[in-house]
Design a protein around this nucleic acid. Structure first.
Lengths: 147, 147
DNA sequence: TTAAATTATTTTGTATCCAATTTAATTATA
DNA sequence: TATAATTAAATTGGATACAAAATAATTTAA
């Protein structure tokens, strides 16, 4: 290939394997999450909601790097399954609060083994996973707990 | 948080930052790709087609980790823009060949600076990027050229 | 103090993704 | 050689993603 096109190859891209890996791993989640009747997006949303019990859409979106355009249908679906309640804040009617239900809390016990099951599929050593984790959060520009 | 839920937190997931990073970087591509009237998916498809000049949907899908359900509309859209031709193979009518047009080849010269522009946005050192690259392809289980 | 600006969420429209089904062509086999 | 099995794409249906516009509530500022 001509020199000037060298950088424009799939094999010289860093974003492409990131994109491919992300989708491949999410595909691996499928059988485990299907048993919980959750999609991956619903699963990571529930993960934050399990931790926080109650938070608003903006906060949730910041944690997940998703905007309300994506979250609105996801949260409506989780509400329809009975795992959370959506209600407007009393102090500020613009704010929508998302609150864990007892059914949602019960789901956490059913989900508790998913991380271990997924770890068993990993092709990386714990050290490699740790390195990857650090690099990914360097790209994201903030650590999970931050802000 | 209770010990038993410890692994079920966003901050202890490896897939989540992968998923978030992938989307964040694809978002960074947008202004550069908009100038070419391409989406990210169209861009990586063109990248393979620029290299191969002519290949079939199955081969393209293997390179991109995408199936024909995703590729069919992407390729129709690229054909509509005039960057490629879709035609059935003479030897096997089931196979759809995707062939670069002169317009598609010309687009390559307009895209040639995108990788450099994106590299300028990177928060990683070249060494870190190299490490990340290696780990991602370890997860994918095959190197870019392989198979 | 009320009109303008801002903010949080929803809606809309477009483009993926992907599982599952369908269609059409080819190959294998009884 | 008919028929079954396989294969490559396309289609269908459901769930994201996300930009842009719309809606509604709150805050700012002239």
């Amino acid at each position: 290939m001509e020199q000037k096109y060298e950088m424009l190859c799939l094999k010289n891209q860093i974003c492409f394997p990131l994109y491919a890996c992300s989708r491949e791993i999410i595909k691996q989640y499928r059988p485990f999450l299907e048993a919980l009747d959750l999609t991956y997006t619903q699963y990571i949303a529930m993960m934050v909601i399990w931790e926080e019990r109650c938070l608003n859409v903006k906060e949730l979106g910041k944690r997940l790097y998703l905007d309300s355009g994506t979250l609105t249908p996801v949260l409506k679906s989780l509400e329809a399954k009975g795992y959370l309640l959506r209600r407007r804040s009393k102090e500020d009617e613009r704010v929508l609060l998302v609150e864990l239900t007892p059914e949602g809390a019960a789901l956490r016990d059913k989900a508790v083994n998913v991380p271990m099951q997924m770890a068993a599929c990993s092709r990386l050593t714990p050290e490699e996973a740790q390195t990857l984790y650090r690099l990914l959060y360097k790209i994201l520009g903030r650590t999970p707990g931050e802000e």
